[in-house]
Design a protein around this nucleic acid. Structure first.
Lengths: 240, 240
DNA sequence: ATTTGTATTTCACTTATTGAAACGCTCATT
DNA sequence: AATGAGCGTTTCAATAAGTGAAATACAAAT
């Protein structure tokens, strides 16, 4: 695809990634990181600045609002997020533990696409957009197609210490398109518990794309990134 | 800035915006929208696809995970979000209504940067990344510098019907950098109530950048986009 | 004073980008 | 069946868009 791509755009997007990874970066560091001359990087960063993707302050270049906005728009268009919403809520309600929706990313990792935190005061924490390696994680194993016959993967103290991760595949047309996972502090779970939760996760994962759901969000969700069924803000609630 | 910018990059970013706005767009529509030839748009969209910013399916081009990821990273680097966190929570706790943090965007609008929903079953709804006009909205008036002496703006049935919006400025060095706002269904509030909430919002807004806060997130927040103080996922909670 | 590093501007050069044209395919209409 | 419209894709001649080396100004450290 190298000959059907646009070098200049690739360079600019690479710089955008650097700015977002770092949070704040000087022109010189950004140029060095991207292997560009300072004047080239300056012009590309200026373009990103002029379009709102980055902004400039005394310390250097920072992400701009346009990335936040487009990222949020992109997420709200992800139909998987809305479909998995109820499943995630139910998993949290029944287990008390943090539940996640993971999808494959374009660079061979997994990505956290939706996050529901558990109800215990000591719980696992992660965030939307976070990348996770496919090796050594339960969600990663599922996304790689390595789900055993019982339908879920359990990994204790894998790439994340002190937690037990349980994941099951969301299938579409026989293909793994996402993983539902629950992550528990290991001190709070034994083998039996992991199997019990595993069966729940597998059941929920099987239901995500199976049934047409009446999942009209009735304000029960409190994620910062909403996936409203209509894009109009409104007063919502029961009509009682 | 036209002569220090990069046309090719601008075009690609414009196409990215179109894909994210629409959620799904054909090559022909994207090209038409951007005023480009089909072959130019194809190559630029291929570049965006190859870098993960968009993806392609049968219906056309969709936002890719890279935008979601960078958007989430960008948001997590926004220090205003973490600083305003407690203020937003307190506003929701004390009023029961939805509370928001708005900032100016690069294109002359306001943007919802952080969202906390109210506790009533009938409440206002909005989302991170949403754009709001500066004219006719309480947050917009505040961001435009039009805050009266009493320190807050109240707009009933402005650009959004059926709601009363109350906003106050977050100031830094005498400059308005953000707005805190509370939005209430109009049937649930009168003038006295609006003034009472207005004073609360103004007090909270004044406190956002004023005091060094011990705002270690103790898992009290349940936004989908977390701003963890460290970027390591962990088990979090009280040490009791 | 000197050195190092940063950000910015300039401009000759070249090659990266462009878009018109051609092609193949699908679908709708006559 | 034939035709037209629209889509997505490929090709390639032309040109101007993008590049980076060099120069400049500034700040900080030695």
């Amino acid at each position: 695809m190298a000959d059907t791509s646009t070098r200049t755009v690739e360079r600019a997007l690479l710089l955008l990634g650097t700015v977002c990874d770092r949070g704040s970066v000087t022109l010189a560091d950004a140029a060095r990181d991207a292997g560009l001359s300072a004047s080239t990087a300056l012009r590309l960063l200026r373009t990103l600045e002029g379009t709102g993707f980055v902004r400039r302050d005394d310390d250097g270049y920072r992400p701009g609002m346009r990335v936040v906005q487009l990222g949020a728009q992109a997420l709200s268009h992800e139909s998987l997020v809305s479909l998995a919403e109820d499943a995630l809520e139910r998993l949290v309600s029944s287990t008390g533990e943090s539940a996640y929706l993971n999808v494959p990313s374009s660079d061979g990792h997994g990505i956290y696409l939706s996050v529901r935190e558990g109800t215990h005061s000591v719980r696992h924490t992660s965030w939307v957009g976070r990348s996770i390696p496919l090796e050594g994680s339960a969600a990663g194993a599922v996304l790689s197609g390595d789900t055993p016959e019982d339908g879920f993967v359990v990994i204790s103290n894998g790439i994340e210490p002190d937690v037990t991760a349980i994941a099951a595949p969301v299938l579409s047309g026989g293909q793994v398109v996402a993983a539902l996972s629950v992550v528990v502090p290991s001190y709070r779970i034994d083998d039996d518990g992991a199997r019990r939760i595993g069966r729940q996760v597998a059941a929920e994962a099987a239901g995500v794309l199976a049934a047409p759901t009446d999942a009209a969000p009735q304000g029960t969700s409190s994620t910062g990134i909403e996936t409203p069924t209509t894009h109009e803000p409104s007063t919502t609630g029961a009509q009682s």
